[in-house]
Design a binder for these strands. Structure first.
Lengths: 233, 233
DNA sequence: ATGTGTGAATCGGTTCACAGCC
DNA sequence: GGCTGTGAACCGATTCACACAT
């Protein structure tokens, strides 16, 4: 990138950085000092050209002939992703999914920390879940302020999701991860991502009904990764 | 599409069909007989041109000057997605997340049905969760055969995920939805999708650290949808 | 000799703009 | 007049292929 300090990292690259970072962490743990784009590609389920292009967007952290320094690259990616910082998150909705998220060890693993639980149902307010007391929705502005919350997870029924999003945004939240099966609208400065279980399943059932397309979709990827021997058949 | 019966529906389109379908269902319930690409776009959070292009891949189901017949289009999309059929799924791993998935009402809402729960932990085998008994992993081949399972959800720890995927594939499963934070490898005929919570959060924290990019990413979308009045500020 | 970094070619997907049908 | 269906233009992302640094 010739190091022209005005980085614009493509969205597709951003979405893969966490995968590289996880692979690098694994390499660091086993003490591997350097890794090639080829090696990293295999661990990340991508191809080497893509890995090199992706990493080049961060700067020039590789060494020609030798590969990438694992420690250095881990630190750089972690820095870009903000993984050194502490990210307190709020979960709204403590039904099945909200409770599972609240108890999920795994984002606590890097920087993310469930700081607050909120629910609209008065019967749930005051309950203790995963070591936290459930607060009423009206407390959101105060909680966002006090806990310095920037990220909100919406785990309510679909019908409540837009209202909750509005209140989160009004309270000052700037990143939302919505698990409710509903299309949400937010102001431009708010980043909104969807995780929709039943959409994922519907995509799978589409391809179950169109099996030829699965083969063709994946055929182009031949050689991407040293195709592990397929188990049995 | 001139109806040249060799449809190749773009992947991006497939991923949006469930959103259109949900919107159409809503319209059908309130008795709206037809909808324009503009109207559907607003409900789906897309723009009208994209909706028209997407729908054109299915065939010519609109009427120029009038829009799309809600009933007809719902049926067509539902048909493509296989939503009339019954899709029994198996969930492997009944930890926090697996249990939440097992109890999730919402994919039961259309065609999908949790038919089987499996876990490697002998202490969990035999437990009753959401009306189902947890089976041992070794029973997978028999269960897949008996229940005619095609879709598997992996909700195990990362370390177990590849092994579980291998056993599911060996048992005959052809679609996998992996919730474990691990890169999996499967044979070409198997469709694999990832849902990775901590990657989603890391993407959010990246953009929290690069707020200018959020604004720019969304600026281009101005006019996409009749920007609902932003709540307060 | 090895493996990065990057222009150039390519591809898939989105947007534009309008011809054609109701 | 209104709205779909679609070629053409455009754009972002992926892949190719190789010059260049170690």
């Amino acid at each position: 990138m010739a190091d022209g300090r005005l980085r614009r990292i493509p969205e597709a690259t951003v979405a893969r950085l966490p995968v590289y970072w996880r692979a690098l962490l694994e390499l660091a743990e086993e003490g591997t000092p350097t890794v090639s784009s080829e090696g990293l590609a295999e661990m990340a389920g991508e191809n080497a050209a893509k890995v090199r292009k992706d990493l080049s967007h961060l700067g020039s952290y590789g060494t020609r002939g030798a590969g990438y320094d694992v420690q250095l690259l881990t630190a750089q990616i972690g820095h870009e992703l903000g993984l050194n910082e502490d990210w307190p998150v709020v979960i709204v909705g403590v039904g099945n999914l909200g409770r599972a998220l609240a108890n999920y060890r795994g984002f606590s693993s890097r920087g993310f920390r469930v700081a607050t639980l909120v629910d609209a149902d008065p019967a749930k307010v005051g309950q203790m879940i995963g070591g936290l007391v459930v607060s009423p929705v009206d407390d959101l502005p105060a909680l966002v302020e006090r806990e310095q919350l920037a990220i909100g997870l919406i785990a309510t029924p679909a019908s409540a999701a837009q209202g909750v999003a509005d209140r989160l945004v009004a309270a000052g939240i700037t990143s939302l991860l919505n698990f409710a099966p509903a299309v949400l609208t937010t102001p431009d400065h708010v980043l909104l991502r969807q995780v929709d279980l039943s959409i994922e399943l519907q995509i799978l059932s589409f391809y179950e009904r169109h099996p030829l397309e699965v083969a063709m979709r994946r055929a182009k990827m031949v050689g991407d990764l040293a195709a592990r021997p397929a188990p049995s058949f």
